[in-house]
Design a protein around this nucleic acid. Structure first.
Lengths: 265, 265
DNA sequence: CCCAAGCGTTCCATTATGTGGAACTCAATT
DNA sequence: AATTGAGTTCCACATAATGGAACGCTTGGG
């Protein structure tokens, strides 16, 4: 019965029960605040009994929690699991000293990110001591098309993969400078030649950055390192001056991991 | 068939498929390094086909990843999920300024932790600028019985709950000073009177700490704040001097959350 | 060069598990 | 007291997980 006609371009394999639960976990995790049972019910459009049991199981495992008003929140068990994933991440560990050095050199915030799907996940961050602070957190996933690290990462991928990736993205216009599919493709070509990428207030007004790509030879790892800060302090000129040091830091990180030894692309 | 004779004291409710997958996730996350298929197979003692599908589903959802040698690692999706759980945690947010102040006052590392089951999960940490660094990470779960925050938390729970909790613990002797069930119960009684707890190198040789409990009136939240550092710098005398400020910080955090307004216990 | 062993993957009949409609409880409201 | 809304429990049924077996692929002897 129920023949499956629709075949999505990037057919997501079915993970059965787990897949359904992950949808809920994502929903609650990414919500702006605690969600009531009914809130979840109307979004997911499932029978009440089913939803109730699913949530109960997630709570039972500590992946979700219920506050005193009976609303659902992400659970702390996630923190425990994630801290292991983070603590042992080889890329992050190898990069750490170089990130510190870069932070010391520039005095601004340094990020390490890795490409996962159509997002950049930030693996580490070293903040400057300057009073102005930006919202940015380790573990956060940001769209690839409006971050320096994201664009740097794209510049490493072969064009076919970039185009395939763009298919899966819905472009949201965060600022007046945010890229569209066309303009992004053009800039990535540019970045490929330059060896580094700028974020000219494309994600958040008043925030600029420079980034350099980091990749393994077989492209199993693609990411980058960036220096970020407020536009009033980080003129484009200053950013350009830092492009060299950042590319050098990226090179040292790749060397430390003994990857990317071949010539560029 | 297969009648269930054994009824554990604290019967863990069955979470079906999810429960089985979480066992795997825990196993891989808490392992010392990447695990091969066969490693997992012999620990979990499941049919190969079953295990293979379970792992595939976890990988498909990004909860696990496979390295180039085909070994399993915790996945970065966990980081994304956890960062939300952390970023929005009300307790952590309310406590932050007070933790910073305490860090400034003492110059040593300040931790915020919360009781979850028989563990303390560290929600936040502010490091001193001193050169000696300790291994400790946000999100890490440590046993209640050998951390300052853990013992402080226990001192808030009614004795019956403490005893029930001890039932579920298997005491591991980390150092010569690590507590046993008996000595722990006795010290908790002491802490109840004092209002603060010490860790006298009970978890790690050379590391001491002072902690004060934080709790909500209905005990839906039980945790604490601590100041930790190397024994050579933190004499017991110095720790005692800080007990006051730490208890005051804890009081201010509770006030900020409008909890624990009633008299102690 | 061929065989065996180790490791991982796929298949499919069987069975455990999740599903969802409906009935039920408990508060808050009218 | 009746009504509505929110959450929970129940159970016949449908679906997804199970696990034994067979299948590939690589590695290393003999």
């Amino acid at each position: 019965m129920m023949s499956v006609a629709k075949e999505s371009a990037r057919a997501k394999r079915d993970t059965g029960t787990l897949g359904k639960l992950m949808v809920l976990l994502d929903l609650v995790s990414h919500a702006d605040g605690p969600m009531r049972f009914t809130d979840i019910l109307e979004v997911t459009d499932q029978p009440r009994g089913t939803l109730h049991r699913q949530l109960s199981h997630l709570v039972e495992e500590g992946l979700l929690e219920i506050d005193t008003d009976g609303r659902y929140l992400p659970g702390l068990r996630l923190l425990d699991l994630a801290s292991r994933s983070w603590g042992r991440n080889e890329f992050r560990v190898m990069a750490e000293p170089h990130l510190r050095a870069l932070q010391g050199l520039t005095g601004e915030t340094v990020h390490l990110g890795v490409l996962r799907g159509t997002s950049i996940i930030y693996l580490d961050k070293f903040e400057g001591q300057q009073p102005v602070r930006m919202y940015s957190q380790i573990g956060n996933a940001s769209p690839v098309y409006c971050t320096g690290v994201g664009k740097a990462a794209l510049s490493i991928l072969p064009e076919v993969r970039v185009k395939a990736l763009l298919e899966d993205i819905s472009f949201h216009r965060f600022t007046a400078n945010t890229h569209t599919a066309q303009s992004l493709l053009a800039e990535v070509e540019e970045i490929r030649k330059l060896g580094h990428a700028f974020d000219r207030e494309e994600h958040e007004v008043g925030i600029r950055c420079v980034a350099a790509p980091i990749w393994s030879e077989n492209l199993s790892l693609v990411g980058g390192v960036s220096v970020t800060g407020p536009a009033y302090r980080l003129t484009m000129e200053k950013l350009s001056q830092w492009a060299g040091p950042i590319q050098e830091a990226a090179a040292r990180i790749m060397e430390a991991m003994r990857i990317g030894l071949g010539p560029r692309r």
